[in-house]
């Protein structure tokens, strides 16, 4: 089993390196994407700064805490895009472009996650990290909080990746649409920059369980701020693992309905 896992990781890393080389070979284009992804982080900084310039911001959240949450979202979403370019995979499913990959001796999930990453999002991770460190340097936190943050962000991002993978195939099966997942993720990106509690209890539940973008970014940030006991942190991590497992299982069930471009 470990041998299989080792091979899958090796295949993923080689594929990702190839995608990265392919990306940087178009120098001007890669520069544009780098500037754009950096600008997204800068625009987050500007938006939050404007909010706190004219008001007291959001109740219970200081300027730096909100900046920390937004930076976490930037990093998490950029990692997600780095591993899975959902729009690209959606288009290729519709065109039958994934077919040549399916003959490779790996699981379909491994193949898709290896072949459809977007290294263009690297700048989003890097600039998000700079914003995160800037915000964290103005906050008080404990080592335990920082560890809980890393664990929950890791589990949450993993859950979001598998959830998105499942969603791409679900969109293919139900509506044969190529824009849906990108639109949904864009919407999620906008909403998860802000604390989940502003969307009410219903919103909080929806963005935790049904569309776990809040699970991936909001709860880790709250854990960093010391809001949860270890038991709650463990419960959130378990929920993340459960969402990942269900998404993974559903992905394979839905893939049985993949008919290539001819269906």
């Amino acid at each position: 089993m470990f041998e299989r896992l080792r091979n899958a990781i090796r295949f993923f890393l080689i594929s990702w390196e190839y995608s990265l080389l392919n990306f940087v070979s178009y120098r001007t284009s890669s520069l544009m994407y780098t500037i754009y992804n950096t600008f997204l982080t800068i625009s987050t900084f500007i938006t939050i700064s404007v909010v706190y310039y004219v008001s007291s911001g959001i109740a219970g959240w200081s300027y730096y805490q909100l900046m920390f949450l937004a930076a976490t979202m930037n990093i998490g979403v950029s990692i997600l895009w780095n591993i899975l370019g959902a729009g690209n995979l959606s288009t290729q499913l519709l065109k039958g472009g994934v077919d040549p990959y399916l003959v490779k001796p790996f699981g379909i999930a491994t193949i898709f996650l290896s072949a459809y990453g977007l290294p263009s999002q690297m700048a989003g991770v890097a600039s998000g990290l700079v914003l995160l460190l800037f915000a964290a340097s103005h906050m008080t936190f404990t080592l335990a909080g920082a560890i809980e943050y890393v664990v929950l962000l890791g589990v949450g991002t993993f859950a979001m990746i598998l959830f998105t993978l499942m969603l791409v195939v679900l969109a293919y099966v139900l509506i044969k649409g190529s824009f849906f997942v990108n639109k949904l993720l864009g919407f999620g990106q906008g909403l998860s920059k802000y604390p989940l509690n502003i969307y009410g209890l219903a919103g909080q539940l929806i963005f935790t369980i049904l569309f776990p973008i809040g699970l991936a970014y909001y709860y880790p940030s709250r854990a960093f701020m010391g809001a949860y006991s270890p038991l709650v942190v463990a419960a959130i991590a378990l929920l993340g693992i459960a969402i990942a497992a269900v998404s993974y299982k559903l992905f394979y069930v839905l893939m049985k309905q993949y008919t290539s471009a001819g269906g």
């Binding site: 008001s55 007291s56 911001g57 959001i58 109740a59 802000y194 604390p195 502003i198």
Partner: peptide, 8 residues
């Protein structure tokens, strides 16, 4: 978001 900001 702006509702929350006005409330705060």
């Amino acid at each position: 978001v702006w509702t929350a900001i006005y409330a705060a």
